[in-house]
Amino acid sequence: MKIRIKFRKFGVMKFIGHLDIMRYFQKAIRRADIDICYSEGFSPHQIMSFAAPLGVGLTSDGEYLDIEVHSFTSTEETIAALNEVMVEGVEITGCRILPDSSKTAMSLVAAADYELYFKEGYTPPVSAEDFSAGIREHFWLPKEFLITKQTKKSEKVMDLKRLVYVFSVEEREQLPYFSLMTRTGSTDNLKPELVLEALFGKMGLHYCPDAVQIHRKDIYALKDKDSAAAEGLLSASDFISLGDMGDLI
């Protein structure tokens, strides 16, 4: 049986990297006495895969891992059993049973949305209103939003508009909060800070990575695989949250 588990990661847990989160869950699943399937061999490992690695420093409300189990009581009991053995900073918020034929979250990932905001102690260089105007002027109105991406071997010019589905800003308590939904996955993965940094550049502002907290809100698959053919024309409505797939029992 395939199960998808959704969790939040917050507080100091943002400093725990992806590989260590994987190890953390392997141990947590044993503590919670979940009847997980193991691989064969002398060093059996749990059948488990994560949707999309979250970078160190990022918090999230929508992280996913898929596991295979021999037996299962209910989604609610599984959530409770896991939350019983979590540390502060990781919370299980969802659990769904998936059809046996379903693909892993990892292979389905197509987009993710983020909130980016200024950390305590940092003052935004301009107001939310100015940022809003900047996004409109520099990002949405032009036909392209080109950046030069430095890879190990070469420089690559990319058009970010093709990979960004949401980019907006709102004001809360006089501070700007940015919303970004970007292409995620094995091809065309776009980190949200790259978009924000490019916007700052175009607005003539200095972008300080230390100042900005990046928070992932959710991860998405494409609703209709075929729409992948029409890459350039995708919008937020073409995606479904990984947490909305499968059933509750």
Binding site: V12, M13, I16, G17, V56, V87, E88, G89
Partner: peptide, 9 residues
């Protein structure tokens, strides 16, 4: 950084 944050199980 995990060396310095505590919070372990």
């Amino acid at each position: 950084p995990a060396r310095y944050i505590g919070n372990e199980l």
